[in-house]
């Protein structure tokens, strides 16, 4: 099921997060902008004005359309806004990782993967 072809091209990390998280992760060097006319960024800054549909669209783009992303990082409080999509996304690639943000500390109760873990062990 996990044949080499599905992930050998996946080299990048992507991020959907608030300004601080994105800035920090970009400083770490994960930022990538594709060449050419329709330059695509692998990051999305979400602020108070960002529409949920925009987040949704970016999430779909990073998880379904782009084939070069291995790990998608998303702030947990933003994942909350599109919880349905995050929970229903079960493919192993790209790995969707919920990360804490500065103003929203990490809550393991909400993490979709940890939820599965707990369900499995019947806790």
């Amino acid at each position: 099921m996990a044949s080499a072809a599905t992930y050998k091209d996946r080299q990048l990390l992507a991020v959907i997060g608030d300004e601080d998280s994105v800035t920090g992760l970009l400083l770490a060097g994960i930022g990538h902008v594709t060449e050419g006319a329709d330059a695509q960024r692998n990051f999305l800054v979400v602020d108070a004005k960002t529409e949920t549909s925009q987040i949704e669209q970016a999430f779909q783009n990073f998880t379904q359309e782009r084939k070069d992303i291995a790990v998608l990082l998303i702030n947990q409080h933003i994942a909350e806004r599109i919880r349905h999509s995050v929970d229903s996304f079960a493919d192993p690639f790209p790995a969707v990782l919920e990360i804490p943000s500065k103003d929203h500390p990490y809550d393991p109760e909400k993490d979709s993967v940890l939820k599965r873990v707990r369900r499995l062990f019947g806790e």
């Binding site: 996946r10 800035t23 970009l26 770490a28 930022g31 990538h32 902008v33 692998n42 990051f43 291995a70």
Partner: peptide, 16 residues
Amino acid sequence: VQESAKQARFRVRAKQ
């Protein structure tokens, strides 16, 4: 920072 990002410096490779 957002505007200066061009090439990913930090990448991952997958092995099995």
